[in-house]
Design a binder for these strands. Sequence first.
DNA 1: TATGAATGAGCATTCATTCAT
DNA 2: TATGAATGAATGCTCATTCAT
Lengths: 180, 180, 180, 180
Amino acid sequence: MIANDGYAAMTTNKVAERAGVSIGSLYQYFPNKQVILVSLLEEHLAHVHPVIERSLDELSDPAVPYVEAMHRMFVRLLALHRDANPRLQRALGEEVPQPPHVREQRRRREAEYTARVATILRDRPDVRAYNPEVAAQVLVEATSALSRWLAHEAPPDLDREAYVREAVRLLTAHLQPTRP
Amino acid sequence: MIANDGYAAMTTNKVAERAGVSIGSLYQYFPNKQVILVSLLEEHLAHVHPVIERSLDELSDPAVPYVEAMHRMFVRLLALHRDANPRLQRALGEEVPQPPHVREQRRRREAEYTARVATILRDRPDVRAYNPEVAAQVLVEATSALSRWLAHEAPPDLDREAYVREAVRLLTAHLQPTRP
Amino acid sequence: MIANDGYAAMTTNKVAERAGVSIGSLYQYFPNKQVILVSLLEEHLAHVHPVIERSLDELSDPAVPYVEAMHRMFVRLLALHRDANPRLQRALGEEVPQPPHVREQRRRREAEYTARVATILRDRPDVRAYNPEVAAQVLVEATSALSRWLAHEAPPDLDREAYVREAVRLLTAHLQPTRP
Amino acid sequence: MIANDGYAAMTTNKVAERAGVSIGSLYQYFPNKQVILVSLLEEHLAHVHPVIERSLDELSDPAVPYVEAMHRMFVRLLALHRDANPRLQRALGEEVPQPPHVREQRRRREAEYTARVATILRDRPDVRAYNPEVAAQVLVEATSALSRWLAHEAPPDLDREAYVREAVRLLTAHLQPTRP
DNA sequence: TATGAATGAGCATTCATTCAT
DNA sequence: TATGAATGAATGCTCATTCAT
């Protein structure tokens, strides 16, 4: 994909080159660099959304054990991050000044995910959270951060399997109703 | 500090201006922009290091309850992130291509922290980890991510106190020996 | 017509659009932008020519008093300039590098007009010029400049009628045979 | 000087090159192309102004015969035009979008010149204008156009002396009080 | 030694021109 | 034959870096 060296290297000419079109063609479809990069971001988000939705559906299904559902979600996020170029994500997600409607949409979507998780924490019989809203917030951040780290920053000799197991343990243990 | 608008705004002239020297003087001490930014990063890391060391000392002190020590560490990291400009961190940590020796030093330091945590997990009587090395890895990442998120990305109306409590619960519960 | 914002705005695509053809078709008939613009100029000159011819015919008619004929010519030039887009004229006439044959044709035509005026100055009984060739030259330039100025650059509150009267006075008085 | 091929050729890099500085230096002093070109224009106007003022002083001096003063002014304008690059003048004066204050200043200055001429026409005993304001307007335009033409567009074989004489005749005859 | 004016490579963007359909 | 998407050279402008003072 695009972006190998951070935002600085995301020149419009390189974007065009890697997209396999001329710079002129790129500007036939996009009015300027910001819009080019933002639409790369939107494309990515559109790709990510259904995967998360599916994972949340699974997480809200009482027939699937909580730990099991969490494990599956973690593995899916991992795959998602693997497909994506982390530099691109960072550049798109944080460096590119985003137009308000995109910022708003991202915010809304994240809030939506968190709200769904809060509901799940409240509703699942095999889970007990003192403050579901905040717990959901924490959970979403931790899940996202751990899967991203494993996908992009973990040293190559790390035991991936063990990491996933340990991560899921951390992400689930504190909500077990059987804790004293 | 520097960096108000992302990497793009970190021009050498601005760096010089805020450092209170002329651009010429800056280049008398540093060979190029990369080195300038990297040494800002190193300065930051030098500031961060003792705080983490102190927290790890506390965490390894059996006289301080584990949850309590974790809480304190979390609060300290929070303060650290508050002092730092997140843009600068991002720019320095991820966008600037870092010379091998700096990359290596950061990696080593992180490995060192993780190793200390692994030892702590192994040694503390009030903690039980199946795989202390991996658990330490996960713990370090999760702690760092959650504190950073609270410091820089949390919505302003979030209940900070509750978030910290919930985060510490997540960071500690899975290691409680009393789990069935 | 074309050209609303000076030469800079005369893009070939806009020329094609306003001409109601595709850019591809335009380039089927014209080899490049210069030729396109030059032929717009030629079209304009073709429009202007008969008007000037008619005015010169009138000017050479002894039945029409000299001042009267001059007045009519002035008014006609005014109308001509009003119809034309001054930006276009300027762009075509001065900015576009013109191929030699067009330059030559314009020069020839202007020489032709001047020659006719010289003849008129010589032949009319109610006119006395010391040096008809040069007087014609001066006359042609002054007439053209004053009418163009009135059409395009005069402040809106100027008394047009009075200006025309005064201009014609200037353009005719020096040739009156009755001067001492 | 600058500008050999119309506005299109006035690239900032060429302006810099001919000014003998680097493009970077140019932009250290001017914020953008428009300002660069406008200040070239202002420089020119500053050069032109005193010459015109002096000519107008002479024209208002009753000790100098009107025709004589007009002749001198014409010759001075000629020299002014000779020194200036006509392409540059055109580009600066008409193509470059000028900031309001510059437009205003030019307008004001031209109005000022015209007003002085009107006063002169009113006051000189050897001149008789029916409508001094309008006559001044016409005179200013005609003088300016004829001198510009002689300086820049006249065919090389033209008898310059004769042209000047004829032009001055045209510019003065209509105001002679001795006309019947 | 410290300065900051000068430099010019490199970026985002436009537009004359081509060519596959 | 007519179309207009695709091309890429060229432009205005920025900023890391140098060097005369």
